[in-house]
């Protein structure tokens, strides 16, 4: 379900979202700060270490959804899967976050005019990394095809 093309897209510096759910069914929206394909079908996403609800949800239920959206075209894809592990971010993860923010914020600034310094207010100060087995993928680009499983005809 994690094709090479989809993995490349999620690694490309697109806007990243992380959805989780608590054991009693409460959904929780959060942002991702870098993504990397670490193995076939395995995605590593860097998240805020200060988001206790997210980390508790991931540890408790293991269910996770990751959405990536291109800033310019708004092409959007979502993968869903099971958490393998949640660990403190490594130096490699943090370096990836820096590179991700540089590229992501620059593109937003160029397209939409948001000041980069103000966009940096959104960036957490500490990070965790979650690794997941990707089980499903969906097109979420705004339009009549939103929600269609990737690889299936609309």
């Amino acid at each position: 379900m994690l094709s090479e093309e989809l993995g490349t897209f999620l690694e490309s510096g697109c806007g990243l979202l992380v959805g989780s759910v608590s054991p009693d069914g409460a959904p929780h929206a959060a942002r991702g700060w870098a993504a990397r394909v670490v193995d076939a079908g395995v995605l590593r996403v860097v998240v805020s270490a200060a988001d206790d609800v997210l980390l508790d949800n991931l540890a408790a239920t293991g269910a996770v959804a990751i959405t990536g959206a291109d800033v310019q075209t708004l092409r959007s894809s979502q993968v869903k899967g099971r958490v393998r592990s949640v660990v403190t971010a490594t130096e490699t993860d943090v370096a990836l976050v820096e590179a991700y923010c540089d590229g992501f914020f620059r593109r937003i600034h160029e397209l939409d005019g948001n000041p980069i310094e103000q966009l940096r207010r959104l960036v957490p100060t500490a990070f965790s990394a979650v690794e997941l087995d990707v089980l499903e993928g969906f097109d979420q680009t705004p339009g009549p095809g939103a929600g269609v499983a990737l690889g299936r005809p609309q």
Binding site: G15, L17, V18, G19, S20, V21, G25, A26, P27, H28, A29, R31, T61, A63, V64, A65, I66, T67, A69, L74, S76, Q78, K80, D112, N114, Q140, P142
Partner: peptide
């Protein structure tokens, strides 16, 4: 709407869904 919103929901089976909103 100057910056897109983000919405997360979850199925009864505990599978989350997350998407941008205009």
């Amino acid at each position: 709407g100057a910056i897109p919103a983000v919405l997360a929901t979850a199925s009864a089976g505990g599978i989350p869904n997350i998407t941008y909103l205009s």
